[in-house]
Design a protein around this nucleic acid. Structure first.
Length: 956
RNA sequence: GCCCAGAUGGCGGAAUUGGUAGACGCGCUAGACUCAAAAUCUUGUUUUCGAAAGGGAGUGCAGGUUCGAUUCCUGUUCUGGGCACCA
C-alpha cells in the first residue's frame, strides 16, 4: 500500500470561514502499514459482488437435503424507502436461513413486493404519474437498500403482485374459488359442478342455501329453471359470490372497505368517515371456513396473543336459537342466545330496527312512535353510533311474545344496540344477568325478574354461570351450567328451537372501486356474471389517463368504454380485487415462480410444503393472516396443494419506534434554549432531524444549515452544549426521526448494522431506535478481526493446539449460540460472541482450532466479515458451504460445567438446615462432591445444586 | 368495560426457567500509550453505611408458598397492545 487507506474523501465547504477547505477525512483507525485491517467497505462490496455473480443463494427445488422455508412478510414498496425499522425482521430471517443452511438444510428464503394498493393510486391521483412507473422505481430503491445489508435472498424468485405474469394466477385462483361451493356435509369446498349434479337429482333439501335459507326447490323444479335462474341460485352458493349487501363505503376514498380495514367507523388508511351503503359487491365466503380457521390455530405455533386476536375476530359462540310465539299472531320471534338457562328471566325482547318483523307486529297505537324511532336510527351514521354506545335508546312495538314454558307475556321492543347482522337480529333480554339488558330495563322502567337469588343485588346485572336457578319453573334449584343442556333438549323436543353456533366474523368484501388492483376475470352477459375463459388470462389492467373514481361508486375502469364493452350485451366487471388478493397466496408462488402452466407445480408445493418460519408484524393479525389461511384451505380442498395451514410457525417482530429530538424556540424570536433551561422561557417545541443530534447534544452548526428557518438561529447553552428534548413516537419522515440504514451501513458496515439491530433486544419486542450503542458492536468486530490479523505483524493465526481453558470458552459459546440462534434469541447470542472474543483476546488465542469453528458460528450474523476471514484461513470455498460444527454434547457440557454430581441423600429440609450449619466449611472452594460425600457419610442424594463451584443446596 | 403482554441500575437489556440479581453493550470514572487528538488497552460503576475490611437494603407495590423467589400463587398500581353494543 502506498498511501495507507483513505476511507473517505470529502470536500467540505466551510461556511463559517467562508473559504473552501479540502479535508481529507480518514476514518480514524486506518493509519496502518499493512493491508491486514478491517476494511469493511471493501470487504462487503467484494463479497456482495461475488455472491451475486456466483448465484450462491440460488435455491433448487430438487435436493436430497431436508427443506426449510423461511419467509418474511413482503413489503409494500412505498415511496419513502426503508428505514431502520423495516430490516429488523429481514435480518432475523436472514440469520435463521443462513444458520439452517449451515446445519445442512435446503433453505428457501425469498423476497418480493406487495405492489398493488391504494397509496400508489393516491399518489397517481396527486401527481398524474402512472402507478406502474412509481412502483417500478420504488422497487428498485428497495432492492438496492436490501442488497446493501447483505441478505441471502434468492432473487431469481422475486415476485411482484402487480406483474401480469403474477396476477394471472391471482385471477386464476379467484376463478377456482368462484367455481366452487362449500359443502357443509363433507365440510370442504367442492367444484360447483358437483352441486349442479346434486340439484339435478335431489334439489337443495340437503344443502340449505347459505345466502338465503328460504330458497328451496326440488330436482324437478331445478331442472325446470332457466339458465339465468339457475345461475342466480348457484351464485348464492359460490365461495366467491356477488351479493347486494350493506358494505363499508368510504366516500372520500371512493371505495368499499373490508371489515378489518375500518377502525372505529373511519377508514384505516387516511381516517376518512365510512358509511353503510347497499351495493352489489363481490364477497368471499370466509364464514364457512370459520370453524376450520379456528381449529387450525391448534396445529400451528403462533404466539398466544396472535391466536387470541384471531379467535376474537372469528368470535365463535355456542348457544341456541329459540322461537317465541307472538301474542295474537301467527308470527314468531326467533332469538339467538348463549344463555338458554336464563329463559325464565326474560323480561322483554329486542329486535334490531331493520328486523323484518317490526312492520308486521307493531300495534296501531305504537305505529307512530316506531316510525319516528326508525327515522332517528336511519339518520345516524355508523360513526355516531360508535361514538355514543352508552346512550340507551329504543321503542316499544306494542306487541308481546309468549314465554313457551310459563306463558308469560313479554313486551317486544326495538333498539339499535341489537345488530341485524348477528344471530337472528333479535334477542331475549335477561336484565338480571346482562348489564346492557339491565340498563335498558332501568331506563324504560321494565320490571326485572330475579332468577339467581342472592347473586343479583338489584344494582347491576350479574352474568355468573355458577348460581342456582330460582323463579325458573322446572329448572328451580338447578345449577346454571347443566340447565343450559336441559333447556336446549327441551326446546328441541318441543320443536321450537335448536342448538346453534354463531360467529362474529362476516364474509369478506372482495371488490374495490379502484384502478390499481387485479381486474376480475368476469364478464356480464345481459347482467349475468360469467367467468372468462382461462385461456384469456391474464386479463391485463388497461392503461388509463384518469384515476378518478366514478360518481356512482364505480372504479376508474368504468370510464374505459373500449375495454368494458367486450361485445354487444357483454360487459366486463369494472371493480378490481382488494390489496389482500395478491398477498393471500404469494408464499406459494415463491416455490415455483416462473411456471407459466400453473400457479405452482404440485411437485414444488409438495416439496416446500408449509412455511417453517414466518416473520412479520402483528398488524396483519386479522387481515392477511386470515385470508391467506382461507385461500390455502380452499386450494387444499380443491386438490391443488397438499397442506391446509400455510404457516407452521409465526414470529411477530416488534415495531421500531422513532426517538424524536426537540428544540425549544423562545416565542417570537430566533433564539433556541437548551432543554434544561427551557422552563424559564415561553417556548415552542420544534422537531429537528435526529441525524444532526449526537445523543441529545445538538450540532448547532448543522442545524443552521439544515433548513433556511434556522439560518439565523442563536442558542442559549447549558454547560457549553445545546441539549435536545426526547420524544418517543412513530418513526416517520414528517417527524424527522427516521434513520436510513444506508447511512449506518456506510459508516459502520452491514455486518455491524445487522448485529446491532439484533443486539438491541428481543426480536418480538417493540423498542425505540437508538443509534448510540452501535459503536460497541463495531468494536467487537474489530476486536475479532485482530484475533486473526494484526496491523503490524499481519496474519496471526497459528496451528497450535488449544488449551483446555480455550476449549472451554469455545464449547460454552457453541452451546449458547446454537441454542440462541435456533430460538431467535439473537440479542443474547451477540452478547455471547462478545464474551467469547473478549476472553480469547485476553488469552491472546489466535489458534485455528478455536477460530475456525467460531467463524462458522458467526457467519449468519456477520456474513461478509466471516467470508473474508475464512479466506484468510486458507479456504478456497465459500464459508456458506461449510457445515456447522457438531461437537459431542457430553464433551461440551463437561468442559463447560466441570463438576461431578453427587448421588446420595437425606430429606430436603434436614439437608438444608444441616447445610446452613456446615456452610462455612463447604464454601471454601472445596469440590462440591467431596464435601457432600464427607459430610453425608454416603447417604443418597438426588441432586446437588452448584453455582460457580460452590454448593448452594442438596435435593433428596 | 373485556382480553392479552409487560414493569429489573443513568440507558438498551441478561439471569442456565426456583439457586451468587444486574451478564453483554452504551454512558460515565480513573489511568496507560501520545507533543496532542483519534484508535487501543486497563480500572471502577445498583444503592446506602464505612478510609478500608466488611455490613444493610434491593427486580412497580402489599402479602403468601419455599431452606431459598426477578422467576410460582393472591391482591393491587402503572405502561403498552388488541377488542368493543356480538346477545
Amino acid at each position: 500500500m502506498l498511501i495507507g487507506h483513505i476511507k473517505e474523501f470529502k470536500i467540505i465547504i466551510d461556511n463559517a470561514v467562508n473559504t473552501r477547505r479540502i479535508v481529507l477525512q480518514t476514518a480514524g483507525y486506518c493509519s496502518s502499514t499493512t493491508d491486514m485491517e478491517y476494511n469493511f467497505r471493501a470487504i462487503e462490496k467484494k463479497w456482495q459482488q461475488q455472491w451475486q455473480e456466483s448465484h450462491i443463494y440460488k435455491v433448487s427445488n430438487d435436493s436430497p437435503k431436508p427443506k426449510c422455508y423461511v419467509l418474511d412478510m413482503f413489503p409494500y414498496p412505498s415511496g419513502a424507502g426503508l428505514h431502520v425499522g423495516h430490516p429488523l425482521g429481514y435480518i432475523a430471517t436472514d440469520i435463521y436461513s443462513r444458520y439452517k443452511r449451515l446445519k445442512g438444510f435446503n433453505v428457501l428464503h425469498p423476497m418480493g413486493y406487495d405492489a398493488f394498493g391504494l397509496p400508489a393510486e393516491q399518489y397517481a391521483l396527486e401527481t398524474g404519474q402512472h402507478p406502474a412507473v412509481t412502483t417500478a422505481e420504488n422497487i428498485k430503491t428497495f432492492r438496492s437498500q436490501l442488497n446493501n445489508i447483505g441478505f441471502c435472498f434468492d432473487w431469481d424468485r422475486q415476485v411482484n403482485t402487480s406483474d401480469p405474469s403474477y396476477y394471472k394466477w391471482t385471477q386464476w385462483i379467484f376463478l377456482q374459488i368462484f367455481e366452487s361451493w362449500y359443502n357443509r356435509i363433507s365440510n370442504k369446498a367442492e367444484p360447483i359442478s358437483s352441486l349442479v349434479a346434486i340439484f339435478g337429482q335431489n334439489g337443495n333439501a340437503a344443502h340449505i342455501c347459505p345466502g338465503d335459507r328460504t330458497i328451496q326447490f326440488t330436482a324437478a323444479q331445478w331442472n325446470a329453471y332457466t339458465e339465468i335462474e339457475q345461475r342466480e341460485i348457484l351464485m348464492q352458493y359460490r365461495l366467491a359470490y356477488l351479493a347486494y349487501a350493506e358494505v363499508n363505503w368510504c366516500p372520500a376514498l371512493g371505495t368499499v372497505l373490508a371489515n378489518d380495514e375500518v377502525v372505529n367507523g373511519v377508514s384505516e388508511r387516511g381516517g376518512f368517515p365510512v358509511i353503510k351503503k347497499k351495493m352489489r359487491q363481490w364477497f368471499l365466503r370466509i364464514t364457512d371456513y370459520a370453524n376450520r380457521l379456528l381449529e387450525g390455530l391448534e396445529t400451528v405455533s403462533f404466539s398466544e396473543a396472535m391466536k387470541e386476536m384471531q379467535r376474537n375476530w372469528i368470535g365463535k359462540s355456542q348457544g341456541a336459537e329459540i322461537k317465541f310465539a307472538v301474542k295474537g299472531s301467527s308470527q314468531h320471534v326467533e332469538v339467538y342466545t348463549t344463555r338458554p338457562d336464563t329463559i325464565f328471566g326474560v323480561d322483554f325482547m329486542v329486535l334490531a330496527p331493520e328486523h323484518e318483523l317490526v312492520q308486521q307486529i307493531t300495534s296501531p297505537e305504537q305505529k307512530a312512535a316506531i316510525e319516528q324511532y326508525l327515522e332517528y336510527v336511519q339518520s345516524r351514521s355508523e360513526r355516531e353510533r360508535m361514538a355514543d354506545v352508552k346512550q340507551i335508546t329504543g321503542c316499544f312495538t306494542g306487541a308481546y311474545a309468549i314465554n313457551p314454558f310459563d306463558g308469560r307475556e313479554i313486551p317486544i321492543w326495538i333498539a339499535e344496540y341489537v345488530l341485524a347482522g348477528y344471530g337472528t337480529g333479535a334477542i331475549m333480554a335477561v336484565p338480571c344477568g346482562d348489564q346492557r339488558d339491565f340498563g335498558f330495563a332501568q331506563h324504560f322502567n321494565i320490571p326485572i325478574t330475579n332468577i339467581i337469588g342472592d347473586a343479583f343485588n338489584g344494582e347491576e346485572a350479574n352474568s355468573t354461570k355458577d348460581a342456582k336457578l330460582q323463579n325458573s319453573g322446572f329448572l328451580n334449584g338447578m345449577d346454571m351450567k347443566p340447565a343450559m343442556g336441559v333447556v336446549i333438549e327441551k326446546i328441541e323436543s318441543m320443536g321450537i328451537g335448536k342448538r346453534q353456533i354463531n360467529y362474529k366474523m362476516r364474509d369478506a368484501g372482495f371488490s374495490r372501486q379502484r384502478y390499481w388492483g387485479e381486474p376480475f376475470p368476469i364478464v356480464y352477459k345481459d347482467g349475468v356474471p360469467y367467468a372468462i375463459d382461462e385461456k384469456e388470462l391474464p386479463l391485463e389492467l388497461p392503461h388509463v389517463e384518469n384515476y378518478k373514481p366514478g360518481e356512482e361508486g364505480e372504479g376508474p375502469l368504468a370510464n374505459i368504454t373500449d375495454w368494458v364493452n367486450v361485445a354487444p350485451g357483454v360487459k366486463r366487471e369494472t371493480n378490481t380485487m382488494p390489496g389482500y388478493a395478491g398477498s393471500s397466496w404469494y408464499f406459494l408462488r415463491y416455490m415455483d415462480p416462473h411456471n407459466t402452466n400453473t400457479f405452482a407445480d404440485r411437485k414444488a408445493t409438495d416439496y416446500w410444503n408449509q412455511v417453517d418460519v414466518y416473520v412479520g408484524g402483528t398488524e396483519h393479525a386479522v387481515g392477511h393472516l386470515l385470508y391467506s389461511r382461507m385461500w390455502t384451505k380452499a386450494l387444499y380442498d380443491l386438490g391443488h396443494i397438499g397442506f391446509q395451514e400455510p404457516f407452521k410457525s409465526l414470529i411477530n417482530q416488534g415495531m421500531i419506534g422513532g426517538s424524536s429530538r426537540l428544540v425549544y424556540r423562545i416565542r417570537g424570536t430566533h433564539e433556541y434554549v437548551s432543554y434544561g433551561l427551557k422552563d424559564q422561557y415561553e417556548t415552542d417545541e420544534l422537531h429537528v432531524d435526529v441525524n444532526i443530534v449526537d445523543g441529545v447534544e445538538l450540532n448547532t452548526e448543522a442545524l443552521k444549515k439544515w433548513k433556511p428557518d434556522f439560518e439565523n438561529a442563536t442558542f442559549i447553552l447549558e454547560d457549553g452544549k445545546y441539549i435536545c428534548g426526547i420524544q418517543l413516537e412513530k418513526m416517520s419522515k414528517r417527524l424527522f426521526n427516521t434513520v436510513n440504514p444506508n447511512d449506518l451501513v456506510e459508516r459502520y458496515g452491514a455486518d455491524t448494522f445487522r448485529m446491532y439491530e439484533m443486539f438491541l433486544g428481543p426480536v418480538e419486542q417493540s423498542k425505540p431506535w437508538d443509534t448510540k450503542g452501535i459503536e460497541g458492536v463495531h468494536r467487537f468486530l474489530k476486536k475479532l478481526w485482530r484475533l486473526f490479523a494484526d496491523e503490524q505483524k499481519g496474519l496471526l493465526v497459528n496451528d497450535n493446539a488449544p488449551t483446555p481453558e480455550e476449549l472451554k470458552i469455545l464449547h460454552k459459546t457453541i452451546n449458547k449460540i446454537d441454542n440462541d440462534t435456533s430460538s431467535f434469541s439473537y440479542n443474547t447470542a451477540v452478547s455471547q460472541f462478545m464474551i467469547c472474543v473478549n476472553e480469547l483476546a485476553t488469552l491472546k488465542c489466535s489458534k485455528r482450532a478455536v477460530l475456525e469453528p467460531l467463524l462458522i458460528l458467526l457467519t449468519p450474523y456477520a456474513p461478509h466479515l466471516c467470508e473474508e476471514l475464512w479466506q484468510y484461513l486458507g479456504h478456497n470455498e465459500s464459508i456458506l458451504n461449510a457445515m456447522y460444527p457438531e461437537y459431542n454434547e457430553q464433551h461440551t457440557k463437561e468442559s463447560a460445567f466441570n463438576y461431578p454430581i453427587a448421588v446420595n441423600g437425606k430429606t430436603r429440609t434436614e439437608m438444608s438446615i444441616a447445610l446452613d450449619a456446615e456452610n462455612s466449611a463447604i464454601e471454601k472452594d472445596v469440590l462440591a462432591n467431596e464435601a457432600v460425600q464427607k459430610w453425608l457419610e454416603g447417604k443418597p442424594v438426588k441432586k446437588v445444586i452448584i453455582v460457580k463451584g460452590r454448593m448452594i443446596n442438596v435435593v433428596i
